[in-house]
């Protein structure tokens, strides 16, 4: 029951995507959908939409070569198959509602816009869908005939984030909530609580996993800490909405040249599996790039530096008394003989994408509006799955759970200080070691702070 077909694809990696394979309709039509914790609707391209047609220039064909191996008792065989696609849309999978006997349009406009201004537009409808060995009936999703994306999306964020609560508001129709994928899993009896755990796995792994309704202790190390979601991102006032939490400070941990604090400014951030990139406040993104002696490239929208600068280097973020650290090599794309840092500067929307999530085990609790975090573990230990029926098993509130900085709409940044980085001479390196730093504050006042444990972090404020 754990065996799945897989598509083998050349690893010219620049922007990896994490996708699930879904069967839609009767008979089933297959589509790969980006698993997106930053949005809440499932949307799939209609086969003949204008954008997809525009990609078919009559010259290129999109070919998938794959090898199938079947093994039975005393019999083994291997065959190679080829399939040709007309457009990248058909390569990733589209949906033709006219050929599904169980599909029903529900006459509701569908229009999803994302942080990069890409979009899907079309109509909501319902059909039967299957992933792995589970099937959901009368499942609501958008069928897009107007898009700029060749691949569909499975949004699994809060119901409030559904486009029925956004677009309908501006079109003078009544906002409403429908059962999106995590909700449908609960309401159709597959899970006990609307919560899931995300494990993307390490950089070179071909598969990660998502566990709806449960936690797998074998996939993380250390303590699983819980944070509250920021309510400010679940109102109609905010430009962006979703499962945001507060990041308290950012540091670079380097085994050779020492650890350094980049920023002690709080900012709201979302763990977004729908993008490989991360967006951080401009001052922080710049400080990280400069810390590797990088030079900003406007063409590539990021800092470029010597790849050797990021060997054994971690990006560590304090979420309120505990840190999660991600390998900087997850964030870089080889570019000629240098490396491009895929951390974008932003003034309004801050996210940690797949590069950070690879080293993070995240439990999203959509009913209690909490996010639990731990350092991901890649030891391939035996599964240790615990059902989530009330609180998240094994999780404890973060030390700063109740005192976390509260985001105010229109004030996108916190009250701490950016730090003019000076290196420390600590040579000991551990991704779990607390940060020691000597800093010069940006206003010229010299100060220093240190912490021997995450609960003793000294924080400077500038109001």
């Amino acid at each position: 029951s754990d065996a799945f077909n897989s598509t083998l694809i050349n690893m010219f990696a620049s922007a990896d995507r994490y996708v699930v394979e879904m069967e839609i309709g009767t008979p089933p039509q297959t589509a790969y959908l980006v698993l997106d914790t930053g949005s809440s609707d499932m949307c799939v391209n209609e086969a003949n939409n204008t954008y997809c047609e525009s990609l078919a220039d009559g010259n290129d064909v999109w070919t998938s070569n794959y090898e199938l191996t079947a093994t039975a008792s005393e019999i083994s065989s291997t065959a190679t198959s080829h399939k040709t696609y007309n457009t990248p849309c058909s390569y990733w999978g589209t949906f033709n509602p006219n050929t599904s006997s169980t599909f029903k349009f529900n006459e509701t406009v569908f229009n999803a816009t994302y942080g990069d201004n890409s979009y899907f537009a079309g109509t909501y409808g319902t059909d039967v869908v299957s992933l792995g060995n589970i099937t959901l009936s009368n499942f609501t999703f958008g069928v897009s005939d107007d898009t700029v994306n060749s691949m569909g999306v499975l949004g699994i964020s809060l119901p409030f984030v559904e486009e029925t609560n956004i677009f309908q508001l501006t079109s003078n129709t009544t906002p409403f909530v429908y059962d999106n994928f995590p909700m449908a899993l609960k309401n159709q009896g597959k899970i006990k609580k609307i919560a899931y755990s995300l494990f993307l796995n390490e950089l070179n792994a071909r598969f990660g996993s998502i566990l709806f309704g449960a936690v797998d202790k074998s996939k993380y190390s250390g303590q699983l800490y819980t944070l509250p979601m920021l309510q400010a991102f679940n109102t109609f006032d905010s430009e962006f909405s979703g499962m945001f939490v507060t990041a308290q400070s950012v540091a670079i941990l380097d085994s050779k040249s020492g650890n350094k604090t980049v920023s002690e400014v709080q900012f709201p951030v979302v763990f977004d599996s729908g993008t490989s990139y991360s967006s951080l406040p401009t001052e922080i993104a710049d400080a990280i790039g400069r810390s590797f002696d990088g030079k900003y490239s406007s063409d590539n929208r990021g800092y470029i530096f010597d790849c050797s600068k990021v060997n054994n280097t971690l990006l560590s973020i304090d979420f309120g008394g505990f840190n999660i650290s991600a390998n900087i090599s997850n964030f870089v794309t080889p570019l000629h003989e240098h490396c491009l840092l895929n951390i974008m500067a932003s003034d309004s929307m801050f996210s940690l994408g797949d590069a950070f999530l690879m080293d993070t085990y995240v439990v999203y609790d959509l009913e209690n509006h909490e996010v639990s975090l731990a350092q991901a573990s890649f030891n391939n230990e035996e599964e240790d799955i615990k059902i989530i029926s009330d609180s998240v098993p094994g999780a404890t509130p973060a030390p700063g759970y109740s005192s976390t900085w509260v985001y105010t709409p229109g004030s996108p940044i916190g009250t701490g200080d950016f730090v003019n980085v000076s290196w420390t001479s600590y040579s000991e390196f551990s991704q779990y070691k607390s940060i020691y730093a000597t800093e010069s504050l940006s206003d010229g006042v010299s100060s220093s702070s240190s912490s021997s444990s995450s609960s003793e972090t000294a924080t400077k404020k500038k109001n």
Binding site: D16, W62, Y114, N149, G155, I210, Y277
Partner: peptide, 28 residues
């Protein structure tokens, strides 16, 4: 079993297949 485990495939970008990096966050 009261839980659903699904594999997530990691797809690498393929030259000319336009694997857009959609910022997955909903924008109002």
């Amino acid at each position: 079993n009261s839980y659903v485990k699904l594999p997530i495939q990691k797809l690498a970008n393929i030259p000319n297949i336009n694997l857009e990096d959609v910022s997955g966050i909903s924008k109002r």
